[in-house]
Design a protein around this nucleic acid. Sequence first.
DNA 1: GGGTTGACTTGAACGTGTTCAAAACTTTGT
DNA 2: ACAAAGTTTTGAACACGTTCAAGTCAACCC
Lengths: 258, 258
Amino acid sequence: MHRVGRKAATDKGGQTKTRILETALEMFQQRGYEQTTMRAIAEGAGVSLGNAYYYFHSKEQLIQAFYHRTHEEHTAATHSAMEANSDLKARLLEVIRLKISTLEPYHQFAGVLFKTAADPHSPLNPFSEESDAVRQESIQLFRQIVEESTGRIPSDLKTELPYLLWVYHMGIVLFWIHDSSPKHKRTYRLIDHTVDLVARLVSLASNPLMSPLRKRALRLVADVRDAAAEDLNENELDDEGFDDDKLDIEAPNGQPTV
Amino acid sequence: MHRVGRKAATDKGGQTKTRILETALEMFQQRGYEQTTMRAIAEGAGVSLGNAYYYFHSKEQLIQAFYHRTHEEHTAATHSAMEANSDLKARLLEVIRLKISTLEPYHQFAGVLFKTAADPHSPLNPFSEESDAVRQESIQLFRQIVEESTGRIPSDLKTELPYLLWVYHMGIVLFWIHDSSPKHKRTYRLIDHTVDLVARLVSLASNPLMSPLRKRALRLVADVRDAAAEDLNENELDDEGFDDDKLDIEAPNGQPTV
DNA sequence: GGGTTGACTTGAACGTGTTCAAAACTTTGT
DNA sequence: ACAAAGTTTTGAACACGTTCAAGTCAACCC
């Protein structure tokens, strides 16, 4: 491996690596992912083909580098833009809009990100170990939003909400990838409307009347999340811990139970 | 192209095509998608490499053939298993369980289905024209479930519910793909719990008190669905048709509005 | 039968991602 | 200054998906 065990007086390796990544991202942006060959990247960066593979084990790994980079940009942009004393809705709106505008230059290229991310065996898979760090950071972002925002939220919901918002934001990105409307107006409109809806749902779920249903739903969410986390470990898996309690609530007007 | 313009007394071409597909699916099942080369498929089917490409334009198209086949199997299984006079919950449970058991033999291979399906440019993309027919059929399945089931559901919800259930069932499949628990017990458990939850939510959404929120959410769903459908057409896109009405409802106990 | 048409089949060739053994260079220890 | 150990760099080679010009074969027409 590079950059270990020696002093690295000039960091020549690091420079080369950066140059390759820079060239790659530029080419991806201009010609798209498939059209950009590793040979072209190497030539553009002024190195040999084998050298490109010395720094990036595969073409896919260049996507992962891209993923890291945009994540950092988004985090930075978020932190500098976050106003104090705003509510969940306002903050969420800002964060998600920033996410899209950060990804903006890579719209046509972003498709392959999702393509590879959807593969269970890809390191880019959101549930894989390799991207665990970035994902945790990303969820952390939403945790801050939730905790620093005004408005009362039950503690059980407060625990899971960051993860739920992260999933929601992934959904928005997925929509954006498919959105071919001018300036992605459609996506921004969707953001406006869904953020509003999410805020309402959080408020609704905070209603004490909804407590039983909420608890059931949150338990389910936690279960799914944990299952995704374990994944490759062999696990005993018994059915304990999720008994069917009597969670039914009576609607105020005599409608069927929920 | 094959099988046009002539009488096809023996349907030799059709036989060859079937043989290739059969061989391919078997190999995918045993060695996985990536490990199975087109050369191996051709050899296994007793044809030349070029011949395999005569019938299937690409390796990816073999996945599409797989997609069609399992869809048909699932539909057949569903129709023969559907009991009369059952409610939404029972029917949904049955259909989704059948879906998973139909896909069962292809679990490790199914990953690439989602991988390619997630690519906006892939014909396998659920929103693309090429798989539109299969998707419509699939949604139709859920429409039957909704319409033939007992229980009162508001008409606006009834319209969108099939699509929503289809999306939900895709989510289950996505989970199943990642599920490495023995016999996919985890997925079946998830199905049990989410079907229950979905039934409750439908019931909750049918409550007249929820009407404003429901209407807003359904409008959003329709909007997203239409956007996905148009996609490649150039579209004007003005902001009409989605005004922010005063939809707030007052929770019975003075909680913040929803 | 002989010829024409079009479906079917072939295998060589191309471009691409990836691997690897060996060369070239840099740093460190003496 | 020299050697040893590490690192970076190279280009040839490989396997695979895909293309294509050319060949074979069966059905049809006269």
